[in-house]
């Protein structure tokens, strides 16, 4: 795919006087994208704009290279959508609805029947395919909704809170399925306020808060930091003092030191010299583990 998955330029949306999205400039590459933010951050509004259900108040939107709303139909032919909450006709069987969902994307009936069967097998519902969707458990409904979102082999699928209401086992199964979508050549945009779900399934994150963009980039780069966690055998305060005298920022933890060096300094060398000067042994040195949740809370505090 040559073009970005999603391109937003100056995107804004208002509900009356309430600003839902504020001047977003975002480009995201193909892959698995996490859209994170607290409830009310603007995630669902953004997805509805990307699908062309809502018109943005300001700015422009391109999805899979298609300008929205000008090329709405072309874009919609290539995407799938699993909305938050049940979006299934409760009086229909899973098999009938999957065939219909595929036909709705223009897939001929014979191929639609084959794809419905394949996709229901993929999500583990093949045995239940002739049961009415209204008789399904919450976990089965979520899997059926994922099945309808991919039954027509889209290029990009939007998943809005896909693990909402699932028990731990169901959540684990759903996240496993979402992770597999990338291997099928389907790009994914997962919206969630459960940040650990995003860390597990995505390689890029777009973080929103109050309609504003907090962060946008690869998860591994966003969560990595130049802070190291150091555990010493001996007087940790003396080591901390020695590090500070070399220009490092040191935060004292109960059993360790968090060391952040100035931008142009190698932290490893700084620590080696401080340990040598204070004749102190080292028990452990690791990169500080930062989660999306830490980053989100830090950003929120800021």
């Amino acid at each position: 795919m040559e073009h970005p998955l999603i391109e937003l330029s100056g995107l804004g949306h208002r509900y009356g006087n309430v600003v839902a999205l504020d001047n977003l400039d975002v480009n995201v590459p193909p892959g698995s994208i996490g859209l994170v933010g607290a409830n009310g951050a603007g995630k669902s509004t953004l997805i509805r704009i990307l699908l062309g259900i809502l018109r943005p108040t300001t700015g422009t939107v391109r999805v899979l290279g298609h300008d929205i709303p000008r090329e709405l139909i072309e874009m919609r032919a290539r995407v799938g959508y699993m909305a938050e909450g049940s979006t299934l006709p409760l009086d229909q069987t899973a098999a009938d609805f999957m065939v219909y969902a595929a036909e709705l994307a223009g897939i001929p009936t014979k191929a639609a029947k084959q794809r419905a069967s394949d996709v229901l097998t993929l999500v583990g519902l093949h045995e239940e395919r002739f049961r009415a969707l209204g008789d399904f458990s919450t976990g089965m409904k979520q899997r059926a909704m994922l099945a309808q979102a991919i039954v027509h082999d889209p290029d990009l699928v939007f998943l809005d809170e896909p693990t909402a209401g699932l028990d731990p086992e169901g959540r684990d199964e759903m996240l496993h399925l979402i992770t597999r979508l990338g291997t099928f050549g389907i790009h994914v945009l997962v919206s969630s306020h459960v940040l650990s779900d995003i860390e597990r399934t995505c390689d890029w994150v777009v973080m929103l808060d109050g309609g504003k963009l907090l962060r946008n980039g690869p998860i591994d780069r966003i969560v990595s930091s130049n802070t190291l966690e150091l555990e010493v055998l001996g007087d940790s305060q003396a080591v901390a003092q020695a590090l500070r005298s070399r220009g490092a920022e040191v935060e004292t933890q109960p059993t360790s030191l968090l060391v952040t060096s100035p931008a142009d300094t190698d932290t490893d060398v700084l620590i080696r010299d401080a340990l040598a000067d204070t004749h102190t042994g080292m028990r452990r040195l690791t990169a500080k583990q930062t989660s999306l949740e830490d980053l989100f809370l830090e950003s929120g505090d800021a």
């Binding site: 139909i73 919609r76 979006t87 939007f158």
Partner: peptide
């Protein structure tokens, strides 16, 4: 919601 991800207005 399903129709909004299919080629129809």
């Amino acid at each position: 919601a399903v129709y909004s991800s299919r080629p129809v207005s």
